[in-house]
Amino acid sequence: MSDLHTSPSGESHGSVSSYIIGFVLAVILTAAAFGVVVSHSLSPSGTLTALAVLAFVQVLVHLHYFLHMGNGSEQRWNNMCFFFTVGFVVILIIGTMFIMNNTALHMMSR
């Protein structure tokens, strides 16, 4: 009974093994990001793309293994908030960069 009560009502929480899997993945991705930059094996734009991909994957790993985000019905509102925020931040960053670059271009400041 108590088990039935705590597992669906408490926030979903990971086990030791899920934390360790997440940690190992995070370490590998972090090391890869450093490695790509230190080794200079890719072109500058290739390095930047690799970094962006590695960071994106690592954020997903953290969200899944450490913040325990999932698609359970009890997390619906958390997820809705999260996706709204992600959309908002993407518009904020891309919009800012677009507007400021465009302004700089018209002002001939660079």
Partner: peptide, 29 residues
């Protein structure tokens, strides 16, 4: 309705995310 505290804190974190998003946008520019 059981953990409104944790959900409320999650909403706070999302607003914090917007602060960091703005600062990243400033840095990008």
């Amino acid at each position: 309705h059981e953990s409104p505290v944790v959900f409320g804190f999650w909403v706070y974190l999302m607003t914090d995310c917007i602060i960091f998003g703005s600062l990243f946008a400033v840095f990008a520019v």
